[in-house]
Simulated scan of single mutants.
Amino acid sequence: MNSKLNVVVRVDLDHARAQVIAKGHVTVHSVNALYVVVKRANSLHEGLGVELDISHARVDQEALEMLHASSETHHLPARIDPQQAPCTISVLAPRTAARRTHAPALIAA
């Protein structure tokens, strides 16, 4: 998997939705770039729902916790958005997190 962060944004203003798709490696440092993209998308339309799809990215646990915290509080970190505009974020978790929680049991032969 590529360590660079690649981001694509899809916006549907008619339905007040935006999708931010990230691929690559999301770290505690690169998560700030995602926050900036989400902030820009959120500023396009009041009440816009933003879906952050990181299902095809490798995401560090601490970065994932930061994203979930923003999702729960409906605000981006103050260093990214000092005005603290409401931001409805839903995070689609990476597949790697699902693999860890549902690891298959080993069978002795």
Results as ranks from 00 to 15, higher is better:
6 N>T: 13
102 H>E: 08
15 H>P: 00
42 N>V: 02
107 I>Y: 08
44 L>G: 12
106 L>K: 04
11 V>M: 05
36 V>Q: 07
4 K>L: 11
75 H>S: 12
89 I>V: 11
45 H>R: 08
79 R>C: 09
105 A>V: 10
96 T>F: 04
104 P>W: 03
94 P>V: 06
85 A>W: 14
66 M>N: 11
43 S>Y: 14
73 T>H: 15
16 A>D: 02
53 D>A: 02
76 L>S: 07
56 H>N: 04
17 R>P: 00
20 V>M: 01
28 V>Y: 07
14 D>E: 04
66 M>F: 14
106 L>C: 05
84 Q>Y: 10
75 H>G: 12
56 H>W: 05
7 V>Y: 09
10 R>S: 02
95 R>W: 14
13 L>P: 11
24 G>R: 01
9 V>Y: 00
18 A>Q: 00
17 R>F: 00
80 I>W: 03
65 E>S: 07
84 Q>H: 14
60 D>F: 07
97 A>F: 14
35 Y>Q: 01
49 G>F: 11
105 A>L: 05
80 I>V: 05
76 L>I: 03
98 A>N: 06
42 N>S: 10
106 L>F: 05
32 N>D: 12
2 N>D: 13
101 T>C: 10
11 V>D: 03
96 T>G: 08
81 D>H: 04
90 S>W: 15
37 V>R: 07
68 H>W: 14
10 R>N: 09
87 C>Q: 07
7 V>H: 09
100 R>M: 06
62 E>G: 06
79 R>N: 06
12 D>C: 00
102 H>T: 10
87 C>Y: 12
104 P>A: 02
106 L>P: 12
53 D>Y: 01
19 Q>W: 08
68 H>S: 12
18 A>R: 00
92 L>H: 15
90 S>Q: 15
60 D>I: 03
60 D>G: 05
90 S>Y: 15
53 D>L: 00
58 R>V: 03
49 G>I: 02
24 G>T: 02
99 R>Q: 12
73 T>C: 12
39 K>A: 10
9 V>C: 02
13 L>D: 04
85 A>F: 13
4 K>V: 06
75 H>Q: 13
55 S>L: 01
97 A>H: 09
29 H>A: 08
92 L>E: 14
31 V>T: 01
16 A>Y: 01
30 S>M: 03
89 I>M: 12
47 G>F: 04
82 P>S: 05
8 V>F: 02
65 E>L: 06
78 A>K: 13
46 E>A: 08
79 R>I: 05
100 R>T: 07
38 V>H: 04
23 K>W: 11
52 L>H: 04
106 L>G: 10
44 L>M: 15
71 S>C: 15
52 L>E: 04
31 V>S: 01
74 H>W: 14
16 A>V: 01
83 Q>I: 06
105 A>C: 03
25 H>N: 14
69 A>K: 15
7 V>S: 04
40 R>G: 13
98 A>P: 13
28 V>R: 08
37 V>E: 10
72 E>C: 12
43 S>K: 15
97 A>K: 10
68 H>M: 11
41 A>S: 03
44 L>E: 11
106 L>S: 06
27 T>D: 07
109 A>K: 08
66 M>Y: 09
16 A>M: 03
102 H>R: 09
17 R>E: 00
